[in-house]
Amino acid sequence: MITTSNLSKKYKNNEVLNIESLEIPKGQSFGLVGNNGAGKTTYFSLLLDLIQPSTGHIVTNDIQVNRSEDWKPFTSAFIDESFLIGYLTPEEYFYFIGELRGQNKADVNSLVGQFEDFFHGEILGQKKFLRDLSKGNQKKVGIVAALIGNPEVIILDEPFANLDPTTQIRLKGIIKDLAEKQGVTILISSHDLMHVTDVCERIVVLEKGEVVKDLVTSEETLKELEAHFAG
């Protein structure tokens, strides 16, 4: 589904990402781990054509992302707060994203309605602008907005950070459900090894922009990862 080949990104002489080849099949839940500066966000930004690759390219569904924009209808993402529009209420934001993705208000309402327990009564009907919500609540809005319009590829950068424990557990349920039942390809990055091993079938470790480990998640994966990062 997503094929990365010879991809690299350089700023001046500083290489921040260099992935020779990486293949992510359809329906996989894919986890990206690494320390700060390992290149996780850079990779996601390249996937979304927000920055230009220095060499190589990414192809999703036979579409090269920096050549054509046809990947946009089936791809959605939440990278950081800059994906939110501060002066809208959560509802307005959902409807706006819905309109861009060809969903009417009823569609959006029924999708968002499924996440009422995820929102914990703090998002809908609050009459607050997004900019006035707490960081955690903003994140919830961003994540749910990324699920609008039946995307085939969902990219979430650090989805667990800033969330309370209850919400983290619920989010794990949502992600698992999407990947298993609905065949959605999910890419997430995280600093939390435990969450990632819980949710993802496959985990790739980035270090200084390069893939150093590519694991199929099993019982031992968490230990292996912990050993890797401890050393």
Binding site: F83, I85, G86
Partner: peptide, 12 residues
């Protein structure tokens, strides 16, 4: 500018 990345990654 605050949410330009969002607009650029959306289907618009």
């Amino acid at each position: 500018s605050g949410y330009y990345k969002l607009l650029m990654s959306q289907n618009i």
